[in-house]
Each structure stands twice: as structure tokens, then as C-alpha cells.
Design a protein around this nucleic acid. Structure first.
Length: 280
DNA sequence: GCCCAGGTATAAA
DNA sequence: TTTATACATGGG
């Protein structure tokens, strides 16, 4: 990658072009906000502004080291999404439609603990409120970092009494957050391990947390670990993919089922009237 | 007021 | 094994 530092800004000249808007607003992450022509957010405790201009991908308020250690992986810059989309489009005309609608989506490689908490909060919830709850969680229990707050550690949350979480207004999910925090904090759940063990073992390990079912587990594996093979047998796959793709097995989506799922999710969310009319 | 939201735990058939 | 319901909260 051709990277240069100018002041506090980093420019990645040869970064692949992609849609920051679709990537940040497709329901995979909850801590980025559009401010003018830039996106403002925080990941791995780094607060930055990002945007594209004629030079390439610009990351404001960063350094070469963070780009190499964090942002290249976070934005998945070294993966060939064009090739993946070509393959997905060949599988089915429905996927072709979804991929064509939002080709600029990339799967962010988020912090595993943040992904776990975020998708516990996401259950039976809507995206604006999920963002609000996560924002209050960080503001109330995370350390200040520039204009934003770091995501609170598992240790920090594990030390809290359940009623302290009332301030984030997460409803019945407060006890789930606490159970996850305690299990990660005391080592009963080893998050690092989930990157390497077989996907079924990883899913089962996550589902050991109270409040984590198949769907949340799949989301954590996809967004927190870039396990792109996630979502093969998930509830969402069974209920929705079987409607979209009668007769096709999850295995047919190969190693990129998770990416296929993201294109379809975003398409169906922004075109709800076409949910059952995608073929037309 | 009503319906719904990137679901899951629980009980019951 | 599958199906029904409660769950906290607030946006539309």
C-alpha cells in the first residue's frame, strides 16, 4: 500500500474505492456518524475522521503505525471484493441484484468484544436505538478519547452492579451484557481463540453466554473476527435465504456467505417492499 | 395508542 | 423437535 503522512492526516493512495456511507450505515457497526463529507468515529480506541478525495482514502488524526496495525485490517483493504461480488453474482440473480444495489459495502473487522456487546444489544431492537444505547454505554463507562469515548472493557463492565446499567436504558439486555462481560473478564470465554477454532465450536462457545443465540453469534464471528464463512446455518439463513433461494443450500454460498448476507440485508432493509419480489 | 425492531429464553405441545 | 410468548424501550 502506498501510504503517506501529511500533518495529522494519512492518505492511502491506492486503497480500493468503496462506499463509506453504505459500509458504515448497513447495520454492521454503530459508532460512526456522517459530518459533512467525512465520517467521524472510533474503533480500537482510535478516534478519526475518514473520507475519500481524489488522492485516495484519507484518515485524519492518525499515524502510519495505526494504519498498518489497525485501519488496513479494519477496512479490509487487502481483500478483493470485486472478485467476491463476481462470484456471488454468478450464484443467483437475486444476489446479483443485491450486490448491484450496494457494491460499495465492505465488512469491517471490528474489535471482538465491542462486536459481542453491540450485537447483544441489537437483539429485538432497531438501529437508531442500538446506536443510542451503545453511545450511552461508552459515555457512562468508557474512558474519554478526544471528542468521543472508548468502548468500555469487559473488566470494567464486569465490575458493575446490574442496576448501574439502568442508565443506558438497554432494557432486558442489561443482564446479557453483564453475563458476557463476566465470562470474558474471568476467562471462561476466550475471545482470541474464536479466530482460529472451527466455526461450529466458535458459535457454540459464544452461545454459552446468556442472551447470545445463533444470530448474535454469527454476527460476532463475521464482524469481530472476519470469519466470512459465518451465516451458513443461521436462523436468518434458514428463514430468509430459503425464501430468496429455494432449493439452494447454504454451502453453495461458499466462504463468503457472510458477505452475501450483508448485501442482502442492506438491500432488503432499504427496499422492504421488494422483500418477496426480488425476482421481478 | 399501535406496530415493529440485525432475537433469545422459557415453557409447552 | 418445533411453536408460542414475554421481554424493555422508543422510533415511526
Amino acid at each position: 500500500m502506498e501510504i503517506k503522512k501529511i500533518g495529522n492526516d494519512i492518505i492511502i493512495y491506492d486503497a480500493p474505492r468503496f462506499s463509506l456511507k453504505d459500509t458504515f450505515e448497513c447495520g454492521q457497526c454503530f459508532r460512526w456518524e456522517k459530518e459533512g463529507d467525512k465520517f467521524h468515529g472510533i474503533a480500537y480506541s482510535r478516534e478519526v475522521y475518514v473520507y475519500f478525495d481524489d488522492r485516495g482514502l484519507v484518515i485524519e488524526n492518525s499515524c502510519i503505525e495505526d494504519v498498518n496495525n489497525i485501519w488496513i485490517k479494519y477496512f479490509d483493504l487487502e481483500r478483493d471484493y470485486e472478485k467476491i461480488r463476481e462470484n456471488l453474482c454468478r450464484i443467483d440473480p437475486v444476489l446479483l441484484k443485491a450486490c448491484s444495489y450496494c457494491p460499495g459495502i465492505r465488512i469491517l473487522k471490528q474489535d471482538p468484544w465491542e462486536a459481542l456487546c453491540s450485537f447483544i444489544i441489537s437483539q429485538n431492537n432497531n438501529i437508531p436505538r442500538i446506536k443510542g444505547i451503545i453511545s450511552r454505554l461508552c459515555a457512562n463507562f468508557g474512558e474519554k478519547q478526544g471528542e468521543m469515548y472508548k468502548f468500555p472493557s469487559a473488566d470494567k463492565l464486569a465490575s458493575l452492579e446490574i442496576d448501574k446499567l439502568a442508565s443506558i436504558r438497554s432494557g432486558f439486555r442489561d443482564k446479557y451484557i453483564l453475563d458476557a462481560a463476566k465470562k470474558v473478564s474471568d476467562g471462561r470465554l476466550d475471545l482470541e481463540m474464536l479466530a482460529y477454532i472451527p466455526i461450529d465450536k466458535a458459535r457454540q462457545a459464544l452461545m454459552g453466554i446468556h442472551g447470545v443465540g445463533a444470530k448474535v453469534a454469527e454476527c460476532v464471528l463475521l464482524y469481530g473476527f472476519h470469519r466470512l464463512e459465518a451465516f451458513p446455518l443461521d436462523v436468518w439463513m434458514k428463514r430468509v435465504m430459503s425464501v430468496f433461494f429455494p432449493g439452494k443450500t447454504p454451502e453453495m454460498f461458499g466462504e463468503c456467505a457472510g458477505i452475501a448476507q450483508q448485501y442482502l440485508f442492506h438491500y432488503s432493509r432499504e427496499n422492504p417492499e421488494r422483500l418477496l419480489d426480488l425476482e421481478s
